[in-house]
């Protein structure tokens, strides 16, 4: 596969949120602001790339029947590394994402890529696949978080845009996440078709 195509597919063509519709729990949970979305997206990207690399390296040693538990252990190890590192060096980000970091383990995007891509492809392709899907995920989270933040708290990346008296609170709450996500999926699908 052409590596450039491999890299760009995560943004629109195989975007994990808008097209594959995977990993909805952290998507709906953390996107109350653009910053949270970015932090979660980058943490997931790191785990995706590292897990994809390691899994594509060890794939031929792992007997078929125990591949899922093996993948999960590898993914969980990387997630815990991210969690400890964040807690130690960026405590502010850890404070706002803390609850969702362990959830990366069960984020089906990571296991999905391990199973669908890394266990069948070489190291370089797998790393690029992880980066592509991870950045596509981050892009989608920032977009979703940004729209919710603008409508729901009148800010973007914590910079006030207009008075809080005109915001519509529903967008920072769970129903707002579903509404915005629905419109975004429709919009992206329209783009893909044309």
């Amino acid at each position: 596969m052409n590596q450039w195509k491999n890299f760009t597919k995560g943004f629109i063509k195989e975007n994990p949120i808008f097209v594959l519709v995977l990993g909805m729990c952290p998507t709906l949970g953390v996107t109350s602001s653009a910053m949270n979305g970015l932090g979660m997206g980058l943490a997931t990207t790191f785990v995706l790339v590292m897990a994809n690399i390691v899994i594509s390296m060890v794939k031929s040693f792992i007997p078929e029947k125990v591949r899922i538990p093996s993948f999960i252990v590898i993914i969980a190890a990387f997630v815990t590394v991210v969690q400890l590192m964040m807690q130690a060096y960026v405590p502010a980000l850890y404070k706002s994402l803390g609850l969702f970091i362990p959830l990366i383990v069960v984020n089906c995007i990571v296991l999905g890529r391990a199973e669908a891509f890394a266990s069948k492809n070489g190291i370089l392709s797998s790393a690029i696949d992880g980066l592509s899907i991870g950045l596509g995920f981050s892009f989608a989270l920032v977009l979703l978080g940004g729209i919710r933040e603008i409508l729901g708290s009148g800010k973007i990346f914590n910079i006030a845009l207009y008075s809080e008296n005109y915001v519509s609170l529903i967008f920072v709450l769970a129903p707002g996440a579903f509404i915005v996500l629905g419109y975004l999926i429709a919009f992206i699908n329209q783009i893909r078709k044309s």
């Binding site: 007997p63 029947k65 125990v66 590898i74």
Partner: peptide
């Protein structure tokens, strides 16, 4: 299977 899981 046992050895693989153990090592991992």
């Amino acid at each position: 299977m046992v050895v693989t899981l153990l090592v991992i």
